[in-house]
Design a protein around this nucleic acid. Structure first.
Lengths: 168, 168
DNA sequence: GATTACTTTCAGTAATGTTTGAAAATACAA
DNA sequence: TTGTATTTTCAAACATTACTGAAAGTAATC
């Protein structure tokens, strides 16, 4: 396969993967483009490569910066901003894990804790099933939480080394 | 908090969580309803509880069955179908992991392997960066894959026990 | 303080995804 | 085989989300 074709396929696949996981397709594509670009790119570059509008490029880049996946540089004598992505996949995974934990897991754990205190009678089947389901999901959520915390602190080699030992 | 309110909040939160992870909101809500229902429910029940149309209920239930999260029962003498969900959160997590692996991770690993064979010259920075990015993501994907496989085979207690040892 | 080079905003529009509801299909019982 | 209960399908309507482009904002330079 040729490089040009491969790059397009990579961008397309990354976009699709993102959209399957609740991340807007364009945002994932911009990220993909930055991942395979040796030099940092301007808004203009990105607009051209991906055929998107200025507004879209700008908003998407801001979002990516918000996710901690992209940073910008300034070059002396130029006002233009240059964007680049951390290309280390372990860092990317950690960054995404950290953001999703903060935005989604933490709030749901909070809610599950509140729902654990529901009032009612043990005689009511609805009550019993609700309590035990919530308790069970809460336990899972807390285990996921702990695992993510370990992952966030971990060095890549240490983390996968430990995982490896699990099933050697 | 009262049970009625708590049930509504749970359904709402599960729906929101689903939509943040690329699962249609209604599908997650139907799942939530079944998770907190002591008895299996008919299409009619679900339509009423969630105020959704027959068509929507039917399609959503079929999808949930496709994800392995819901099953149906028949009762002697009745044509009507009764739906219920496995309430064990470890099974749910495994089921979701299994399906997403099959639908998303496996195809992307296949693609990454193909992209690894891209042709080009080591002198071209585009080529070098592309290769090393793809290689790096591929490595991560394979590690995730192995971890999921371990999870799919594992008993809950064994899995979390092993995770726990990682950071004690 | 005017000009240029850029970035940001956002109302309007386009694209995509979801839901409805009624008709068609199916299964069952008499 | 006919009637009835139920499920399934799918075109059209609706809702949500994403994108555009032009205008407004900002910073740097002369």
């Amino acid at each position: 396969m040729e490089l040009t074709e491969a790059r397009l396929k990579f961008i397309e696949a990354w976009g699709k993967l993102g959209s399957e996981w609740g991340i807007n397709r364009t945002m994932a594509q911009v990220h993909a483009l930055l991942l395979i670009s040796p030099e940092s790119l301007t808004t203009e570059d990105i607009m051209q490569e991906l055929n998107i509008s200025r507004g879209n490029a700008n908003m998407t880049l801001r979002d990516l910066i918000g996710w901690g996946l992209v940073d910008k540089q300034h070059r002396p004598g130029e006002r233009k901003e240059y964007f680049f992505a951390d290309k280390n996949s372990w860092n990317i995974a950690r960054q995404v894990a950290q953001e999703r934990k903060k935005r989604e897991l933490d709030p749901i754990i909070k809610l599950l804790n509140e729902l654990s205190d529901v009032e009612g009678s043990e005689k009511e089947p609805n009550y019993r099933v609700f309590k035990s389901t919530v308790r069970d999901i809460n336990k899972l959520a807390k285990n996921v939480n702990k695992t993510l915390e370990a992952m966030l602190k971990a060095e890549e080699s240490w983390f996968w080394g430990s995982i490896f030992k699990m099933f050697k």
